[in-house]
Structures are given as structure tokens and as C-alpha cells.
Write a protein that binds this DNA or RNA. Structure first.
Lengths: 328, 328
DNA sequence: TTGTAGGCGTTATCAT
DNA sequence: ATGATAACGCCTACAA
């Protein structure tokens, strides 16, 4: 079907070894032979077979990316950024949408192993620690504790909610509610709730938590939010992500609650997408590009030098307040 | 490092061939041997090496997915759906974000070839026909003419804009503008503009086209739209996609133009994302799930039986009007 | 029912 | 400066 090494060798009138050498730029080659080989490669439209190469221990230049979903704008932007970074280094990615499905995540990990990927970037939220413990593969994690020896990259979730609450206070809010997951899971995102509670505590204010899980459907979230708006009548809401914040805005509108006059709302994530198409929303912006750069750097470092231990186990990147109309 | 076939064979006290047989469920095996082998596999946490397998002609169970971007909600939902479908069939995907970058798309194609993918689903918009012509690999295309022998799946773009324009008319619009790309490229999406022009023609109405390209930045789009709103003062706008429609809504709001009283707007795509977070927007919904199913079915059919020619070369799937407030 | 030998496309080692 | 050969991990004849 497609041309192989020996075809090129035949055409160029040299041995397979020589062709291999010019491909890998190994040892001493005469310019003349190089040229012959290059010409033959071009003529046959030759493409080295990655599979055969990595049977000899060469890298596949392939990374597994495990995230819950790409339809969430935050993950989409993060993954797209990761993909860009990796591409410039010659890496391709196998995209694994784990959803909320523990078994799918588990099967994907097996497949990645079978495909000899060079490493994994994991940001899903299903599996227990043990599954990742002994993969014998470079892994870095986003926003999630996987194991003691797997480095975590996340934004400074604590600082983020602190900023958000203070922004609401400064805008005059007296009764601030947190909308987000109440259930702690030992992950960095737990810090968001913690920051909210701590801050309210310090200010001697009552904490109001409206529990909405990441994996809840928008419909269910809407109902929960609506109930909260009606019963609690908060004048400020800090949300665990931008999408939830938009649902809050929508429900408020339906109920005739004016934003920002009667209610101020702030989100979390700060994707370009939301800032472009919901430009009214104030939010805490995660440094998406810095996160992806760090994830990729840490991973490639481990791939290229597996012995080297990472300097830190948890990298917390600073967030930024983006102030718009909803907290005016 | 990781266990291999011979390790399993040794542990089970059988030959490598036998282990291979139980893995592939080949020929006659005694239950006893099977059990021994299974046990050994489990004990060693054995995972067959896909690379070595497909060196023998076995399928890699890997598909390349080439699209412009995953941050566009439409592509995100389409790709996520494709990924789901393929996963249930045991396939993984290599995600290739081509952006508006011709060279990147070209390099990705080479990489996919080198990685021995079993097929490609292409939906990017950069390369000329020739690049895809002779890949010698099963390919299906979304919304784009790649070559005479590559089947295309798309929605019925023509019908979509017809529906949209008629919806605007029925809502009382007299002066309807089309916002979208003016440049024809020989792709199915060209039908959108054509449908607009034809329909306006039939109705003896003047066509107004506000040219905005898919790859324009939101900022540039905003400026173009603003100018059009001020100068043309349309009372109805049919957009080439939902995101553009939202920009129109935003600019209209800034200019104090009331929707739907002074201006009615309808989009195109109908993603869950936009329908959830911009639930006011009327739109023409593409049958995302049907599209992905068809793409995957056609591709797998070609992979499993390369000789078989597709029945059709262009599959046009019906669209659906989703009526909301913006065309009330 | 199970084992032996050869080969998939490439690279590393050892020659020359 | 270039070649021959074995090896990577697995699978498919062919044998037994």
C-alpha cells in the first residue's frame, strides 16, 4: 500500500540502515547519499511508520487527554490550548471524554496504555486514586488529586472566591450566597467553598450555600436556583463557574429580579467564550494559557527525564477579577 | 517495564501462540488453558501492545478527527457526539484542531498517516482538494467538498435558510438581512447564502448581505454588524450561525434596538449549549446527533469493507426550526 | 489442542 | 561512510 523504508532504500540504491540514518540524522552520511535518500523519500511520498518505530523504544509523540467533556467552554479552551502547545512540540493528542462515567474513564486509560502513549494529562473527576497510582507513565493532573506522586496544576481557587466575595461586598451586597457543589472530594476545587465559608466567617456574616453539582443537568440547576432566589432572596451570588452564573442571571430575569440593581452576580472561569457572548458577566478568570503551559511543560519534562522528580506537587496559579455589569 | 505476551506465556506455562489465541479467541482452546492464561494476564496486569498488533495488519482502532476548533459549541457538540459513537465501537480519536491554518492541517494529516489511523473524519476548511485526494484511507467529510470520491454529510443548508427567512416574514419582517460569509467556496454551506438570495428573489424583495467570515474575530464581526444595524436598519436578520446571532443581539441592545419589537433575529446551528444559555434565540437546528451517527456509520463501513462504494456522495439531513422570543 | 518459525517496518549493534 | 543482522511485541501459517 504505502511506501516503506526498504522501498526508499531500493530506489535510492542504498541499504535500509542508511535510510534510517538519514531519517534520524545519525552518524556520518555523505551529502550525496543524503540527497539520494531525500529524493527517493519525496518521490515515494514516504512517511515513517510510527508504530514500527516505537516498537524499538522510540517515543510515539502521543499524549492522552482525559477530561469530563469538551462542550464545557472552560474545558474546551483549556484543551485547545493544550493541543496547540503540544502540537508545536510535535505531539498529537488522543481525546478522552470521560463524562461522569467511571468505567469509561477506566477503559480509556487501558486503551491509552495499549496505544503506548508517552504521557497523560488528566482532568476528569470520576476515578479513585488507586486507578492512577501504578500506571508507570508520566501523568500530570488538572485541579484534581490523583495520587501522592502526581503533580497537580490548578488556579488559586481559594483566592478566587475571596476576590469574588469581596467584589460583591464592595458593590454593596449584604446577603451573599454561594452556588456550587457542597460535597467535598479532596480536590483543589473544594477550596472554593472553603474560601466562601472562611470569608463569611471572618466578616461575621451568615453563609448561605445553594448546592448545585457540576454534573447536574441545567434543568435541575435551574430549579434549584429558582427556589433559592425565591426563598433566600440574596442580593449577591458568587458562583462556582460561569455557566451556573448565567443560569442564575436567566432565572433572575424570569423572576423580575433586576441585575445589578437588586442582585449582583459573579462567576468563575473567565473563558473567552463567555466573556464574548455574555460580556455583562463579572467573573474570576482562571489563567487558562498559563495552566496549559505549565501542564505541558511538567509533562514533557517528566517524559524526557523520567527520573527527575517535580519540584512541587501542587502548583496554584493566580486568578484575576474581571469586573463587568453584573457586579456594577 | 510492562508485561508482554511472553511473560504471560511463561507464567501460564504455555507458548506465546496459545496466549495470542486466547486473546484473539482463535481456534480450539481447552477451558483449562484459557483459565490459566486469563489468570496470568490478570496477575501481570497485561495489556496487549496495539502497536505490535497492527504491525501485523490488525486495525489500530484509531480515527483522526480534523475540525477547525473545539471552542465553537457546534463543533464541540458534534465532536463529542462522534467521540461517544466511536467509543462504543472500541475506537479512540486523535483530535486535530486545524484552526485556519493550512499548514497545520497538512502536518496533522501526515501525522495521522504515520500513526496508522484507520480513517479520518474531516470538517476543517483550509486545504485544497488535492491534499485529500490520494491518502488511500477511508475518509468522510462534514459540510465540505474534499474530493469526488469522499462522501459528504451535511444538514440541508438550503432548507435551513429558507425556513429562517420564512419565519422572519411570518413574524412581520419587511427588510431582511443575511449575516454570513459572502465568499463562495464550493462547500455545502454556500447553500445558505444561495437560499437567502433565491428566497428574496422569489418574494421580489431586495437582498441585503452583511458579509462576516467564519474566521473573523468577534471584535471585527461586532464592528461590521454595528455598522450594518445603523446604516441598513433591517427589521429582520438571518444569521449563518448562532454565535453571530448573539453578537447581533448584543449590538442591537447597545444601540437601543428592541428585540423582537424593532428587530427579529434568527440563528443557525441550534446547539444545546446556546439553547440553554441563550434560550431566547430562535434558530435553525442542525441534527447534530444524526450527523455524527451518519459520519461514523459511513466511515466504519468503509473501514470494514474498503471495496464497497458509498450509495450516495452527499447526504443532506433535514433541519428544524426552533422558535423562541427573538422571532416572536 | 498446542507449539515452532517467520515476518510486520524500523532501529541498534556490530562489522567492514 | 555504509551494510548485515538481530531485535522490538505480536500474529499467522504450518506442523505436530
Amino acid at each position: 500500500m504505502t511506501a516503506k523504508l526498504t522501498d526508499v532504500a531500493n530506489l535510492a540504491g542504498v541499504s535500509a540502515t542508511t535510510v534510517s540514518r538519514v531519517i534520524n540524522n545519525h552518524g556520518y552520511l555523505s551529502e550525496k547519499t543524503k540527497q539520494k535518500v531525500f529524493d527517493a523519500m519525496r518521490e515515494l511520498n514516504y512517511q515513517p511508520n510510527s508504530l514500527a518505530r516505537s516498537l524499538q523504544g522510540k517515543k510515539m509523540k502521543l499524549i492522552g487527554i482525559i477530561f469530563p467533556s469538551i462542550t464545557n467552554p472552560f474545558f474546551a479552551e483549556l484543551i485547545e490550548d493544550i493541543e496547540m502547545q503540544l502540537f508545536t512540540q510535535g505531539y498529537k493528542i488522543i481525546l478522552c471524554n470521560a463524562g461522569k462515567n467511571k468505567q469509561k474513564e477506566s477503559e480509556y486509560i487501558k486503551m491509552l496504555l495499549a496505544n503506548q502513549v508517552d504521557g497523560i494529562i488528566a482532568g476528569a473527576h470520576n476515578l479513585g486514586i488507586d486507578e492512577y497510582q501504578q500506571l508507570g507513565l508520566p501523568i500530570v493532573s488538572f485541579d484534581r488529586k490523583l495520587s501522592d506522586n502526581i503533580p497537580i496544576v490548578s488556579c488559586d481557587n481559594y483566592q478566587g472566591i475571596e476576590l469574588a466575595v469581596h467584589d460583591l461586598l464592595q458593590a454593596g451586597c449584604k446577603k451573599i450566597t454561594f452556588v456550587g457543589d457542597k460535597q467535598l472530594k479532596g480536590n483543589p476545587t473544594d477550596e472554593r467553598l472553603k474560601a466562601y465559608c472562611d470569608t463569611m466567617d471572618k466578616l461575621n456574616l451568615d453563609a448561605h450555600i445553594c448546592s448545585v453539582a457540576f454534573s447536574d443537568s441545567p434543568l435541575l440547576k435551574n430549579m434549584t436556583i429558582r427556589k433559592m432566589l425565591i426563598e433566600d432572596k440574596p442580593d449577591g451570588i458568587t458562583c462556582t463557574d460561569d455557566l451556573t452564573a448565567i443560569l442564575v442571571l436567566q432565572e433572575a430575569k424570569k423572576l423580575g429580579i433586576r441585575v445589578p440593581e437588586d442582585l449582583k452576580v459573579i462567576g468563575f472561569d473567565g473563558t473567552k467564550q463567555i466573556q464574548t457572548y455574555h460580556s455583562e458577566l463579572s467573573t474570576i478568570a482562571q489563567p487558562i494559557s498559563d495552566i496549559s503551559t505549565l501542564l505541558v511543560d511538567l509533562l514533557l519534562e517528566r517524559i524526557n527525564d523520567p527520573k527527575k522528580e517535580p519540584n512541587q506537587m501542587h502548583y496554584k496559579l493566580p486568578v484575576k477579577l474581571i469586573k463587568n455589569e453584573t457586579t456594577a
